[in-house]
Structure formats: C-alpha cells, structure tokens
Design a binder for these strands. Structure first.
Lengths: 338, 338
DNA sequence: CTGAAAGCGCTTACAG
DNA sequence: CTGAAAGCGCTTACAG
C-alpha cells in the first residue's frame, strides 16, 4: 500500500479512501491510484483493515458440525454457507466427530480469531464454558441440540413429536409390538426420540418390553445385528422404529437379508438418499437439516446485527414420508424367519 | 492485553512472551501474568499477532468446491479438513455451484484474507487470472479438474481410463450397443469420460452411434428422459454407461419404472450411497474423493512449507465395483419395453 | 478534496 | 530475565 501511495504520489489515507468509501476523492486521483495499484499488483490486506476498524471482526463465522460426510451435517453446512454468503461473510467449518475436547480446542481457536459468531452442533455434554465467549460479545446459536448449562439460542427439530408420530403411524397398521433402536448418546436427540416412542406406546396402550428396545446402537452393523437378534426371538416384533438413518440402514440390511422386507414394518427417523428407490420404499420421519441450518444462521446474523430479544428455541417440524415400509400390516405372515 | 500487563505489573513484551515462547520468562512472572489474564478473561487476538509475524498469514487455507450437499464435494471437504487439522490450520470453504463469477469473487476474498493456500475444484473455464495470486506467493492446488491456462499442481482421478474400463466391463458381457449419458460441461471430467467410452468402442470394434450418445444431460430427470427415449427407439441399446452418479440415478429410475432393471445392463461412473442396497446393485466405476482431497491437501501443505519441486499432476485411481447391474448379459430379453 | 498523525493489538529486535 | 520502541498494514478523526 505504501508503494502504491508513492507511485501515485498521494498519501496512504488517500489510497485507503480509494479502496473504501470512494466518495470525496477526485476522479483524477482515483484513476491514478487504481493504475498504480494495478501496476504493482496490489491487494488490500483484510486482516489489517479489520484490525483498525470498529469491532475488529473478520466477517467470518465459525461452524462446528459433527461430520460433513454425513448428509445431515452437509445440509446444515450448505444452508449456513448460503445465508452467510448473502451477508458477504465467510464460514470457518470443522468436524467434531463427537469429540468434546476437539470442540473446546476449536472454539478457542475460533475465539482467538474473533469470529463474528458461532454456530454449533455440540459434541460436549456441558457447554457452560461458552459463557465467557458470550460475555466477550460473540453470539452463539446451537443447532440440532439445545445448550446444556448455558443460555443461548437454539434451533432443533421436534424429535419427540416426530418419533411419536412415526410410531403412531405404525400403530395405525395394527402394530403393537414395535421395536426401538436408538443411539447410546443419552443427552442427544436420541433421548427425545425414545421419549416419543414411549409416549406413543402409552397412548396405544401397548406394553414397553425391554427385550425389543435397544438404546445403545451406534453403527449400521450394530443395528443389523440387533434387528436380527430380535427377529430370532420367540416373540419377535412386527415392526421397527429406528431413531437414526444409520440404524435404519442396518435394519433394512437385515430385513432384506432375511427376505422379510415385506413382512415387517419399518419407520425410520431421518431420511437418506435413495430410501425412495428401495423396494419397499422406506417410510421415514424426515427432519429438514437445510431449514435448521438456515434458521439458525439467520438467528445468528440477527444477533450479530445487535438483536437483543430474549433467547429462544426454535423448533423445525418433521415430516412423515410414506413410502411403503411403514404401511406393512401387523398381520403379515409372522413367526420366526425361515 | 494492555490491561493484563498493567494488572500484572509487567510490560506488553512480557505478556506477549508468556503467551508464546514461554521460555526465558521467570516462573513467578508467568504465573502473575496468567492470573491477571484469567481475571480479566483475556483472549489473545490472533489476527493482530499474525499481522506482526513473519509472513502475516492466518493459518487458514481456502477451499472452493462445487456443492457440499454432494457426496463428492463433502468427501473432499472432509479429507481436506482432516489434513488441515493435523497442521492446526483452519479451512474457509465455499460452494461454487458451477458459477465462474462466484469463483472469482471468492478467490479475491480469500486472497484479501491472505490465506496460506488455496484448494479449488474450479467452475471457471479459464484460470489464468490466478497467476497473479500465485506470484503473490499463495500456493494453489487443483482438485478433480486440471487447471487451464495456468501452471499449477493438480490431483485428478483417471477419468478416461476409468470410463474405458467401465465400458469394457459391459463389453465383456457381450454388449456392443452401449449408450452414453454425460454432462454438458465439455471441459469437465465429462469430456475425458466420453473419450474413454469412445476408446472402448474402438477397441471392441463397435460403431459409435450418435443416436445413443447424449452429452448434454445434467439432471436426474434429464437422464431419466434420455434413457426412456433411447429405450423406445427401434434399435434400443442393450447397455448404458452413465458418466455421473446423478445420471445413473435417472437411468435407474427409468429402468425400474419400465421393469427393465434386470434386462439392460448399467455401469455408472462415481458411486452413491445405497447403490449396493438396490436390486440389482449398481455396478460402478468408483472414484475416491477422500483420497483426492487428502492428496491435494498434502500437496498444498508441501508447497506452503516451501517445496519448490516441479509442478505436477497426480492421478488417483478408480475402482470397478461389481454389483449386478453391469453384468446383465447382452442377450437378456430385448425388444421394446412393454 | 487531501495529508500528517495516531492507533488497532500484537511481536520483535535492541538494550539493559 | 525484562522493558522501551518501532512497526505489521491498514483506518480514522483532525486539520487544512
């Protein structure tokens, strides 16, 4: 910048003005400076200019998600980036993989960078450590999971209501012996989905049988095994409710493997690509990650803009998508798989 | 920082030393400063420290991909972030959606931020504009597509060889009338995949029939329609080679819709979730986005580290995954669909 | 409309 | 081992 000023024969202030306000600088000088800048291949340094500017923040937000290789995380990222782009803000994104320590390290990093705001799908159980960052003036919005031990905005989907609806949908086809497969992470949405399952059982007056409830399944293989085990029991379930798309995949694999895909009903929480291409199509309670990301990002930008309204939780609805697997009747041929 | 120094009764230099080198500062002073920092809830400002440091770069790389909602882009992002995390470097990522203007704007933004390096899956046709940025000392590595009108490192998959292999695989089951569906973007990998297709036809001595070649299909619906049209012709193809997973989806939809999924062979380029769950499973030439991202990121960090070796292109192999759809014989019941 | 000066929050020789 | 001073590349009152 100094050399540009020298070459154009003006002061640093003037060069700065040319690259910002543009107003109150004469045409003649503007073109002289531009020419010099071009000749020297000058590029303004954003970091330096941010530093001197009012709040000294870099027009960047941080985004901490679980794993961008997941549909859900990827959709959130995409929606967030779209909103951020509208505000000419960049996104610094990282994957947590459920690692709470990594979360803390990345948050510290983002704070040292003075990001304008933070969007987070937390991996940690306790987010009270973020209180300092909030005090320091960094707005934080939680996605998918509400904060624990911290007052902050959040955007979640109606996990309990969605699960309830999914299980009631199975009951509508006559099912009363409905298995539950859920993730182990008790403080995650999995807990609420289980609550919805229990509530549905209560409403239809079905008994809760721990033999067909598994709340410690985290992988496709685990779900496939759990599903097979339940099916080989003396009183196998006539329907399955899987609380995560990964677990739905496992259940599908086992059902297809045993040739039972048209004999046992299945409703999954969370959609997945090609679920509509399978035969039968997989009936799901779909959550809208795109909307969760968009709404969360918009909330964040309101906060960044100075919005002081009370902290709140926004709930994004789920949608039951009927495709076949969830409408298989309870009186389809039963008994042990052959 | 100033108040920390005041509270601890030391100079700014000392505070700075405590938060960096840590060496040559007495234990007593260190603890005094730490205490003051804690009390004031002090957080160092990375931007300011970067500015004063040797190269003034923010330990950040830029990543421009097409659309993180795509499996391919997401896998690249994930691999790049993993490598960057190893180097304690953050990733600023944006989606281009094939928009060349957006690409230029985002590149300018990243350069103004003085990112340490740039990874790009270009949307533009001509990347000569990046020459300035290279001169300014920002290493650039291309992913998926080699640079045009610019000398830069790149990591691509063996598009032509992969397509060749996929088509040859179809020929092995007796097919000679093999349709091609490809994207319109001629300077993208689509062009090379088409070249592989043509080469395979040449090798097996089959004639190239433009009636069953479509190089302007970019959507699932478009592929489904093109596939249906070809099937309803007087001399329909006995097999399909689709040069993109989106197009493979369209072909599958049409084949299943017409009940022909076991009568026409199909090999697709690029895998997709659940292709292994479909019946028949979809045989694909899979590219390894994860490896492309990892290798590209590692190359970038070598360059950032000062590596001056000659610019080069690294080719990541593809893998033929046999699942059923590609092994359907040419003499399966043919004729017009009923 | 333009320039000289101070300063953003930090680091880095240079003294002591 | 510690401090005073200069400076990273820019912006912003304050004069003129």
């Amino acid at each position: 910048m100094r050399s540009v000023a020298a070459l154009a024969g003006v002061s640093l202030s003037t060069v700065s003005r040319v690259f910002n306000a543009e107003a109150e600088v004469s045409q003649e000088v503007v073109s002289r400076v531009r020419k010099a800048a071009l000749q020297l291949n000058y590029q303004p340094n954003r970091a330096a200019s941010d530093l001197r500017r009012r709040d000294g923040r870099p027009s960047t937000i941080g985004l901490l998600i679980q794993d961008v290789a997941n549909e859900f995380s990827a959709s959130i990222f995409r929606a967030v980036e779209d909103v951020a782009a509208k505000y000419s803000v960049s996104v610094l994104a990282s994957n947590l993989d459920g690692d709470a320590e990594r979360e803390r390290a990345l948050v510290a990093n983002l704070m040292a960078r003075r990001v304008n705001g933070l969007l987070i799908v937390p991996a940690s159980y306790d987010q009270s450590y973020l209180h300092f960052q909030q005090q320091a003036g960094t707005p934080i919005v939680f996605l998918d999971r509400p904060p624990l031990f911290l007052a902050a905005d959040s955007v979640v989907c109606d996990n309990e209501a969605g699960a309830f609806r999914g299980v009631m949908h199975l009951a509508k086809s006559g099912h009363r012996r409905i298995a539950f497969l859920g993730e182990s992470n008790a403080h995650s949405p999995a807990g609420q989905r289980y609550a919805g399952y229990r509530e549905a059982l209560r409403v239809i007056g079905a008994e809760l049988d721990v033999a067909i409830v598994r709340r410690d399944v985290d992988t496709v293989d685990g779900a496939a095994a759990a599903c097979a085990e339940m099916l080989s029991s003396d009183v196998p379930p006539t329907a399955f409710f899987t609380a995560h798309n990964r677990l739905t995949l496992g259940a599908v694999r086992t059902l297809v493997g045993l040739g039972l895909e048209y004999r046992r009903a299945l409703v999954g929480f969370d959609d997945f690509p090609l679920f509509d291409f399978l035969r039968p199509g997989i009936t799901v309670v779909a959550q809208d990650a795109r909307t969760i990301g968009r709404v969360g990002a918009e909330r964040l930008f309101e906060r960044i803009g100075g919005d002081k309204s009370p902290i709140g939780q926004q709930v994004v609805g789920t949608r039951l998508i009927v495709r076949g697997s969830g409408e298989i009747p309870a009186d389809a041929p039963s008994g042990r798989p052959t």
